[in-house]
Structures are given as structure tokens and as C-alpha cells.
Amino acid sequence: MAAKDSRHIGPEHVAIIMDGNGRWATRRGLPRLRGHKVGATRVREIVRACPDQGVRYLTLFAFSTENWRRARTEVAGLMALFRSHLRSEADELTSSGVRVRFIGERSALNRRLQDLMSALEHRTRENDRLHLTIALNYGARDEIARAAARIAAAVARGEMAVGDVSAATIGRNLETADLPDPDLVIRTSGETRISNFLLWQSAYAEYEFTPVLWPDFSADHMADILLEFGGRERRFGAVLT
């Protein structure tokens, strides 16, 4: 998607790397999964707040392709938590006008989880108040590689020439092809890396790294960040006068 030509405007699309659940729990002497459960309540709060804060698109990094390296018990607990919350939140998401979609490689996920994901996407497909994208078993390099493979296959079939391949071609073959690029990427917990999240789409995004752990990240924290974003100058490579 093309970058917006605007100096001072609230973000239409916010992407969040929800980090710090495990540390939040460990600091309190609790199992790491307890931190993930509390973090899930924050997802609900932020989703509810976004429309009133002027955010129309929200993308959340829920589980990366690298997260499979965690302890087997933690991964199993996370997958059970995903299934539980997709069931428990489905009615409210639908009634509150949230359209839900998922990005990431689904084939490695439990069949029951895949079915819940597909059912929620279908159920909310006509909603338009907030577009919620959940990155589950997602890695940006993997996404770009799969896009490149689709383009290569099209070239091999004679449907396009090598010279026709462009940045726009790649963008159209990403899972986010029908979404605007993120205006703002937030990472909680104080870490200052992007961890293979929306690498292509965030080329011109603004970043905010907050020390607040995700289970403590509230709608008020979000509002403060959005207010600060409104004072930034976004040049998109140009010199503004």
C-alpha cells in the first residue's frame, strides 16, 4: 500500500507486538501461562478502545514462527488459550462490529484451532467498525518467501514476465494485501527489536517501544502513545517545508 502523505494525523492502522507476558508472571512468582491469560484480557480492552481512539485497523502479534521453540507445556497452554478465547470472544466481536482475520501459516496449527479461526473470519466478514488482524504462527520472512514462491509460480506458468515483478507485485501477494500498511508499530516490555513482524509492510511505519509489560498495557497507555504520534512529522523519504 502507498504511504500516506500527511504530517500530523492519528494512525489509522496500529500494529502491536504484545511482549512481556512471561516476565510479568515470573516477577510475581506465577506460572508463565498466567501472564498470557492476563495478557488476553488486555487484548479485549485494547480492541474495545480502538474505534473510539480513531484506530480502524489493529494487527496483533500473537504467536510467531519462532515461538515453537518455547517449552512444550507453554506452547500447549498457549494453543489451548487461543482456542478458549476465540470461543469466548466470538459473540462480542461479532456484535461490536469487529472484522477478524488471521495471518500466518495455519497448516502447523491444531485442526480445531484452524476451524475456530475460519469460523470467526466467516462470521465477522461483513463487519467494518474495526478490522482486527491476528498474526498467529506468523513470521515476516516466511510470509515474503511464500509471496515470492507464488510470483515465481506465476512466471513459470507464463502468466507474467520477470520484468513485471515489482514491489507492488510483492505487496499484492502478501497476506495483508487488502490492508493499509501500519502507521504505527508498538512493542511493549522495553525490548527494542521488531522480531520478524510485518517487515515489508512497516517500511514507513513509526515505532514506539514502551517499557510497560503487555499485561499492564491499558487503553490509557494506548491513548498516550496515539497522542504523541499525532505530533510526529512523517516524511516518507521527502523533505517537508
Results as ranks from 00 to 15, higher is better:
residue 1 M to H: 15
residue 4 K to Y: 09
residue 4 K to D: 11
residue 7 R to K: 13
residue 7 R to N: 10
residue 11 P to D: 00
residue 11 P to M: 01
residue 14 V to R: 01
residue 14 V to Q: 06
residue 16 I to K: 02
residue 20 G to M: 08
residue 20 G to R: 10
residue 26 T to W: 02
residue 27 R to L: 08
residue 27 R to C: 03
residue 30 L to C: 02
residue 31 P to M: 00
residue 31 P to Q: 00
residue 34 R to Q: 08
residue 41 T to Q: 08
residue 43 V to D: 11
residue 44 R to Q: 11
residue 44 R to K: 15
residue 48 R to E: 15
residue 50 C to K: 07
residue 52 D to E: 14
residue 52 D to C: 14
residue 54 G to T: 14
residue 54 G to N: 11
residue 63 F to P: 13
residue 64 S to H: 14
residue 68 W to V: 06
residue 71 A to P: 15
residue 80 A to W: 10
residue 80 A to S: 13
residue 81 L to S: 12
residue 83 R to T: 15
residue 84 S to D: 12
residue 86 L to E: 10
residue 86 L to W: 09
residue 87 R to G: 15
residue 87 R to A: 14
residue 90 A to C: 12
residue 91 D to A: 15
residue 91 D to L: 13
residue 92 E to K: 12
residue 96 S to P: 06
residue 97 G to F: 14
residue 98 V to Y: 02
residue 98 V to W: 01
residue 100 V to E: 00
residue 101 R to L: 08
residue 101 R to V: 07
residue 108 A to G: 09
residue 116 L to F: 11
residue 126 E to H: 12
residue 130 L to C: 02
residue 134 I to L: 08
residue 136 L to Q: 06
residue 137 N to F: 07
residue 141 R to I: 10
residue 141 R to Q: 11
residue 142 D to S: 14
residue 146 R to T: 07
residue 148 A to Y: 04
residue 150 R to P: 03
residue 152 A to Q: 01
residue 159 E to R: 11
residue 160 M to T: 02
residue 160 M to S: 03
residue 163 G to E: 11
residue 165 V to G: 04
residue 165 V to N: 03
residue 166 S to W: 07
residue 166 S to M: 02
residue 166 S to N: 05
residue 168 A to Y: 07
residue 169 T to R: 05
residue 170 I to D: 00
residue 170 I to P: 01
residue 170 I to H: 05
residue 171 G to Y: 05
residue 171 G to R: 15
residue 171 G to L: 06
residue 172 R to H: 11
residue 172 R to A: 08
residue 177 A to Y: 11
residue 179 L to A: 02
residue 182 P to R: 04
residue 185 V to K: 03
residue 187 R to F: 05
residue 187 R to A: 05
residue 187 R to E: 03
residue 189 S to P: 00
residue 190 G to Q: 04
residue 194 I to H: 01
residue 201 Q to A: 07
residue 201 Q to D: 05
residue 203 A to F: 00
residue 203 A to C: 00
residue 209 F to R: 04
residue 210 T to L: 02
residue 210 T to F: 05
residue 211 P to V: 03
residue 215 P to W: 02
residue 224 D to S: 11
residue 232 R to I: 06
residue 237 G to D: 04
residue 238 A to G: 07
residue 239 V to W: 06
